[in-house]
């Protein structure tokens, strides 16, 4: 099953950057890639909605990298791709933007690109499963407390 486009960047970021860059480099050799804007890295101000009164405030900054490209196949098919990731590697953002365009336009190379996304999703799933184990191992069971004398409760 193919993942939705909005899930691609997080999946690709879950993989070693070298793998993502390698595939993007290979595809760049077969396709014409033009930068719509130069890839760049900087900071983003992270706006949170506070949990008490739902007011916005800035908790701090995050590194962000952004890239936008147009990819054209030998057959003349063209698609725009972009990436905006919480990371400070502009070239990684560019690689993801290339894969984004390739997959969005179903250009040559979209099959291995989607396979990479699927693998990234598995990595994310694995990571989330490991985090859930932290919860599962430490769930508090208050049913035992109910069997004791409630006078001990504070």
């Amino acid at each position: 099953m193919n993942a939705a486009r909005k899930e691609w960047p997080a999946a690709l970021c879950a993989l070693p950057a070298a793998e993502v860059k390698h595939l993007a480099n290979v595809l760049s050799g077969e396709l014409e890639v033009r930068d719509v804007a130069l890839p760049h890295a900087g900071l983003g101000l992270l706006n949170l909605r506070d949990g008490a009164f739902e007011e916005s405030y800035f908790i701090g900054e995050i590194p962000v990298a952004r890239a936008e490209v147009t990819v054209r196949s030998a057959a003349g098919d063209e698609e725009r791709g972009g990436a905006l990731i919480v990371d400070d590697r502009a070239q990684l953002a560019r690689s993801i933007a290339i894969l984004d365009a390739v997959m969005a336009g179903k250009l040559p190379g979209s099959v291995p690109a989607m396979a990479l996304v699927q693998r990234g999703m598995q990595v994310r799933q694995q990571k989330q499963s490991e985090r859930k184990k932290l919860l599962a191992a430490t769930r508090v069971d208050f049913s035992l407390l109910g069997q004791e004398d409630d006078e001990d409760e504070e």
Binding site: R5, K6, E7, W8, P9, A10, C13, G44, I62, V64, R66, A67, E68, R80, G81, G82, A83, L84, I85, V86, D87, A97, D100, A104
Partner: peptide
């Protein structure tokens, strides 16, 4: 964050 092309919110990290 918004996707640079579609504008749709996506998980950026």
């Amino acid at each position: 964050l918004p996707h640079p092309v579609t504008g749709e919110l996506m998980e950026a990290g």
